[in-house]
Structure formats: C-alpha cells, structure tokens
Write a protein that binds this DNA or RNA. Sequence first.
DNA 1: AACTAAAAAGACTATATGTATCCTTTTAGG
DNA 2: CCTAAAAGGATACATATAGTCTTTTTAGTT
Lengths: 136, 136
Amino acid sequence: MMELTRKGEYAIRGIVYLAGKPIDKVCLLSDIAAAVDVPPTFLAKIFQQFSKIGLVKSFRGTGGGFLLGRAPENITLLEVVEAVEGPIIPNRCVVSPPECERSGFCKVHPVWKRVQGEVRSVLAGVTLKELTNKEH
Amino acid sequence: MMELTRKGEYAIRGIVYLAGKPIDKVCLLSDIAAAVDVPPTFLAKIFQQFSKIGLVKSFRGTGGGFLLGRAPENITLLEVVEAVEGPIIPNRCVVSPPECERSGFCKVHPVWKRVQGEVRSVLAGVTLKELTNKEH
DNA sequence: AACTAAAAAGACTATATGTATCCTTTTAGG
DNA sequence: CCTAAAAGGATACATATAGTCTTTTTAGTT
C-alpha cells in the first residue's frame, strides 16, 4: 500500500539527474531518459508537467532542452512528488472539505491527518541538492 | 498519491465496529456491514482475511458470526491496515532484498525508508480501543 | 525561405488494480 | 435433515497505470 508509481519514481530520477548537472547546462530529454533509464516518451510527459509549474525550464527547437527551474537547494522532494502524483492523501477523508460523511464522529480521521503530516514533513525536508551524487 | 483503498477503509470501519461491541458478543457479518455501510459481500472477503491471521475469530453455522480476536487495546491500526493492504511500501526500493538495481548509489532510498518508518510508527501507535466511540 | 532539431499536445492502447457480485461448498445448530 | 452462516472460487466491470504514436509548435541554421 501507499506505493509511489513509476511516474513518480521516474520523475525523481529525471529531475535529480538535472540537479546534478551544471546550473546552465541545457539537457536533452533523450539524454536524460537514457541516463536514468526511463522511456523517453514517458519522461517527456513528466517534464511537461514540471515545466508548467516552473520546476524546470524548457527550450524548444535546435539547441533546446531542459534546465532546472530553481537552484537544487530550493526544490524539495515533496514538490517533485506532488507535481506528478498529486497531493499526499493517505485517505480520502483528509481532503478539505472532508469527503467523508463520517467525519465528526470518526476517530480515525485525525490519525490520517497525522500520517499525511509526517509524510509531507519528511519529503519537504529533503532538497534536490542532497539527492545528487555531487560532493561539495 | 498514497491513498488507502476502499478495502482498507472498509476493513477499519468493520473491525472498529466489532471493537466497540462487548468482547463476547458474536456479530453477524450482515449486521456489521449494514452498520458501517459497506457491501456485505465485500466485507465478507475482508473478514476472511482477518480471520486467517487471527485478528477476528469466526464461527460458522447457526448462531455463528464474528468476535474480535484479541482485546481492542492489543490490536493496532497498523495490523489492520497491513492485513488487507499488505505492507506499507512507499516505494518498491524499500522492500528487502531491494528490488531497485539503483540502490547503493541512490540517495533517495533512505528517504523512503524514513517515510515508511514514520507511517508505520503513527499507525502502530493507535489501537482499536482508542478508535471506538465508547467512553472509559 | 526552407530545413532541421527539439519540446508540446493530444489521441490511443494494453495491462494491472480496485471494487465489487454471484454461486457453490463447508460447518454447525435445531 | 433442514436451516443459518461463514469460506472459497469464479467472474465482471471500472478505473488507474504505463506507455506509444502522431501531429503541432517553436526556434535555430543554411
């Protein structure tokens, strides 16, 4: 249960790869896909999502490709995961307004809130910088 | 992402209902299902799983039904969830032996381990007793 | 202007998972 | 032996996941 999908896994691999490159190095999608072992067409969809919210910058045409949208130390794993997987929702009942007609008397609700908080907190505490294999 | 399935949700509702009944009160599946608003055939499957691992005791035939397998204060939410959803696996890479051929150099791995630990810890810290609406 | 490189966008397919339902079998009591 | 109730197995349908293919847009090059 609670498993990250391939999409999320691939998203992380792809953007961590970008984060490990020089900040001004425009990378081809095809190169990224080959480097992190992800189907290029699938990674394209993922990077389109990233691009829309500014996590990466994209350039079309000859000499085009992708750059990281912000400095790696300013992008958290939580942002990356939520960008492609949507919000961290351990149970429907934690969305607001509560979808659960049982809230009010359901004692499980606060537990899921806590789970959500812990997961978000762990992921928000990790930046792309820490995930690259670059020293210094 | 990371959403509990209906099965998990129903499982919790069903067993919490049982936990709120007197310890020796044999409950009919049909009554439980009606009380917690879950399709009876679906709940049957769930309780079969519970029964196999002793979370509930089942009795067949006339006068049959279900009892909680242990005292409510000795059953955690983690056990209930894992009974029907399987282990808490935020990413494939946390299963042992690691399924991820990238472990060893992948810096994300320990993060997922931490997520897994936090979620398990929250769920393990809640017992069925605390989830019933019974006072005292 | 024409050609080429590269990402964006949209339609489409296959497989797996989730959400059940139905039918038959087993077990137990009256 | 009849009835009540859970167990087990097969099946059906919907949705989500995982991925592909084709066309369009954008931008640099010749």
